[in-house]
Amino acid sequence: MQQFPCPFCGLREETEFHFAAEAGKPRPEPAAQVSADRWAAYLYLSAAPKGEAHEIWVHRSCGEFFLMTRNTETRAVLATQALPGRAGE
């Protein structure tokens, strides 16, 4: 059982969380100007790094999305933080 620190609720069990996406992929807009390749890259391609990964997770219990840096091989959690602009609300 892994544990992740939700920036809002603290350390909770893995079953309360859901992986949302790899971090750092802004949504390409407007649609009319987005090429098929760019859209496919945004929607589907991923780095799936072995080692350090920057990801967006959601703590389903509180509904907050946040950033997590962790090692996908050792499963060590390196850091979590609220999405920009959401800390301290």
Binding site: H18, R60, R86
Partner: peptide, 19 residues
């Protein structure tokens, strides 16, 4: 219900001044 709520939440937190 749960997945629709999550779609709304994600967009809310990602795109809107959440207050």
């Amino acid at each position: 219900v749960a997945s629709v709520r999550m779609i709304l939440e994600e967009a809310r937190q990602d795109r809107f001044a959440s207050k």
